[in-house]
Nucleic acid binder design. Structure first.
Length: 206
DNA sequence: TAAAGGATCCACT
DNA sequence: GTGGATCCTTTAA
């Protein structure tokens, strides 16, 4: 399992290195879920208009962002989708990386039932790719919720990351950022080239 | 207490 | 490629 020192570094160093890492979540009912991370975005609180912690703003919802590196920050977007972040740097530094998409490795049956209520063999090709190719979809497939997951430690026996194979890492502008303000142009999205589980393959890449 | 908006997803064209 | 759904969190009065 990746040590805490992996997370307690500059966010823009951690984010691209998360590509290819294998995430494991073990739920209370014993189900093992594994996925290979293929898409992330960095959010650097104090200087980032698009972050929930812009200017160091601290609320009931985002308090996990202020904890030590390797903490999970889970929030609900648009009232219904759960998104998971990995907190970086140290206590009092509200920075993190949003996990946007993974490639399913283990527990695919469970993911299929959670997402579509039917077994994997009944899914269309499109539905299989739609299991985890977006922040909210990944959250639903992995059974992520604020109860129990928010504030959880990535250095624990039921939630952790391990090394995995990594392909070519590309970078782009982030997705869903309003088309105004200086934060929109930052190339803080990282994803694996040619991976079908990446939510979007934009034109502007480096 | 009320109002506005959002780090998205899905169905439809 | 486009637009609507949907409800929680924040902020201001």
């Amino acid at each position: 399992m990746l040590p805490r020192t992996f997370y307690e570094r500059p966010t823009l160093d951690v984010a691209p290195e998360l590509i290819g890492k294998v995430l494991t979540i073990i739920h209370d009912d014993g189900t093992h879920l594994k996925g290979r991370i293929v898409e992330v975005e960095a959010y650097i609180g104090p200087d980032d208009r698009a972050s929930h912690t812009y200017g160091g703003k601290q609320t009931v919802r985002n308090q996990s962002m202020f904890k030590q590196g390797g903490t999970a920050y889970v929030y609900i977007i648009y009232g219904l989708h759960h998104c998971m972040n990995v907190v970086t740097r140290g206590i009092g530094k509200p920075e993190g990386v949003l996990l946007r998409a993974v490639e399913p490795l283990e527990g695919i049956e469970t993911m299929s039932m959670r997402r579509y209520g039917k077994p994997i063999e009944d899914l269309t090709r499109r539905e299989r790719l739609n299991l985890t190719n977006g922040p909210g979809k990944f959250g639903q497939a992995f059974g992520i919720s604020r109860d129990g997951m928010d504030g959880h430690d990535f250095c624990s026996s039921t939630l952790f990351l391990e090394d995995g194979e990594r392909g070519t890492v590309l970078r782009s502008k982030r997705i869903g950022i309003p088309n105004s303000g200086e934060a929109k142009d930052y190339l803080w999205r990282f994803y694996e080239a040619d991976n079908p589980y990446v939510s979007k393959h934009p034109k502007e890449t480096e």
